[in-house]
Simulated assay, not measured.
Amino acid sequence: MYEHSDIGELLKKVDHTSVVPLHIQVEELLLNIIKLPDYANGKLLPKEIELAKNLGVSRSTVRQASNRLSEKNLIIRKKGIGTRVNKDMITTSLDSWSSFSKEMLEKGKTLVNFEFELKSVKSDKLVSLKLGIDYDAKVYKLSRVRGIKDEAMVYFISYFHPKVTLKDSYDYSRPLYNIIEMECGYYAEVSKEEISAIAADEELAEKLNIEIGEPILKRERIVFDRGQAALEYNIGYYKAENFKYSVELRR
């Protein structure tokens, strides 16, 4: 019996008559496999020679596809052991949202604030538009560089609606939206986001300890309370090698 019978149906989806190159189809197959709970939680992926035999393709085709996943930092190969999903690749599903703190806590990671600054500023035109407030209104601006151990992973800049009053004395090791709920009395319910890819400029390179020009995932979000009033406008700059987004669309 095939050792990986749990993916038997997936293996039937490679179409040798399709105009789509086989290595692209196999890459898509591998992407579907690593999303399965057992593999996402550490089960070794099928061996390349085993996959090639069951798919009726060459081993080089499977290797080409798996190389792509390795380059994207989605899988890790260990000689003499096998290939597993890279658990340190943070995955956020776009059918739900959470804070970076929550995402990391769910993975058992200890967060570190490498930089932290909270100050009161006057809102510029962009912030005023995003939060639906008057130009030059006083708002709290929170800037943080966060990560794990000795690795900076993300640079956040947040602007809060004037009704959200933050204090230096709050414990910012907690998830931000828990603080807003417990200390300010507002429950964050909806997040509207825009995601884009950019190249690191000098400031971002310095903040995240990377080279100028390296890829950055930029995420802009407006967070709303239960009354659909804006609470926060946030810009997050993520090191691309550590993050990916998954999207599931339903008809």
Rank of each mutant, 00 (worst) to 15 (best):
G108S: 07
E71V: 13
P162I: 02
G8E: 07
S96G: 02
E106C: 12
I222V: 15
I33G: 02
G80D: 03
A200I: 05
V14C: 03
L208V: 03
K138S: 07
N73M: 06
L69C: 04
E106P: 03
F116E: 01
E103K: 13
N32D: 10
P215I: 00
Q64K: 15
F116N: 01
P175E: 06
I216D: 01
I180T: 08
N86L: 04
D15N: 14
Y172A: 01
R84I: 13
S98I: 02
A40D: 11
D225H: 10
T91L: 14
K102Y: 08
Q25K: 12
K72I: 01
V19Y: 15
P46I: 04
A188I: 09
Q64G: 10
K47T: 10
L74I: 02
K163M: 03
N234G: 02
N242P: 04
V121K: 08
R77E: 02
D6C: 09
I49L: 04
Y187D: 00
T110M: 12
Y155H: 10
I222H: 03
G227C: 10
R250A: 01
G108K: 14
S169P: 08
K35N: 08
N32K: 15
M89F: 09
Y245S: 02
N242Y: 13
V19N: 15
G236F: 02
E183L: 09
Y2D: 12
T165P: 02
F116W: 08
N178S: 15
S143K: 13
H4M: 05
H4D: 03
E241S: 12
T92E: 07
K130Y: 03
R221C: 01
E151L: 12
G213N: 06
K163F: 04
E206I: 05
H16N: 03
E193T: 10
F100E: 00
K35T: 11
V127H: 04
